[in-house]
């Protein structure tokens, strides 16, 4: 963390210089699992953004009341609360996507990014800036997952958001549909991002 926590500094840090996925390498399992279709990725990451933002806000609001001994338990409780809300909403209003995401919505609870932000930021910062920190961390996660999903859906199905964009003659790459392909894409993405950072003279 930098010492000066201005909104722009937080934005830059969470989306780029310490992006949860490609710098901290957190939340990888969902990055592999849900990224073969853009629509699913979009809804899933939207859920993560909402949960990270709201749980950060709530943890920050409650932080002076939370006894130290049960700090992490309460954080987990708050996170679980928002995740279950997301799950309930999806099941009621977006049943198809809820079915496609299956257990991964519930598993947002175990996403280390959310717990990490609650513990590292919200526990020691005022509510609004914590909300912003959660929001931008979620956006950092969303950006990377959507980038991976873009390539996986395009090469694996020849579609984007379900619309055919590549000609029918295109032979879909089955590997892109399978989870391992996200490993390769993530590796490439980390390589590209770090190369840019080195060029910019950022400490890596």
């Amino acid at each position: 963390m930098s010492d000066v926590a201005t909104p722009t500094a937080i934005l830059k840090e969470n989306v780029w210089t310490s992006n949860p996925i490609f710098m901290q390498v957190l939340g990888i399992c969902s990055a592999l699992a849900v990224t073969n279709l853009l629509v699913n990725t979009w809804i899933m990451t939207l859920g993560v953004v909402g949960v990270t933002a709201m749980s950060n806000l709530t943890v920050s609001l409650l932080k002076t009341f939370i006894p130290r001994k049960v700090r992490m338990m309460v954080q987990t409780l708050i996170i679980a609360f928002y995740v279950i809300i997301v799950d309930i909403l999806l099941r009621a209003y977006l049943p198809d996507i809820s079915r496609a995401l299956g257990p991964y919505v519930g598993l947002i609870i175990t996403n280390c990014i959310i717990m990490g932000r609650a513990e590292a930021f919200a526990q020691s910062n005022p509510p609004l800036i914590s909300l912003w920190d959660g929001l931008t961390s979620g956006l950092g996660y969303m950006g990377v997952l959507l980038a991976i999903a873009l390539f996986r859906e395009l090469l694996g199905f020849g579609t984007l958001f379900g619309y055919q964009v590549l000609p029918n003659a295109f032979e879909p790459w089955i590997i892109m549909v399978m989870p391992p392909s996200a490993f390769f894409l993530l590796g490439i993405l980390i390589w590209v991002a770090k190369s840019i950072m080195i060029k910019q003279g950022e400490p890596v």
């Binding site: 006894p67 130290r68 049960v70 279950i84």
Partner: peptide, 29 residues
């Protein structure tokens, strides 16, 4: 706030509130 009694009561109350809210949301949908 670090006492045993406060910790137990706080944990109970927080859990109760959040679970009650979830039950409500579930009942509505």
């Amino acid at each position: 706030k670090q006492s045993f009694v406060y910790t137990v009561v706080f944990t109970f109350v927080v859990a109760f509130i959040f679970v009650a809210l979830l039950a409500g949301a579930n009942a509505m949908t």
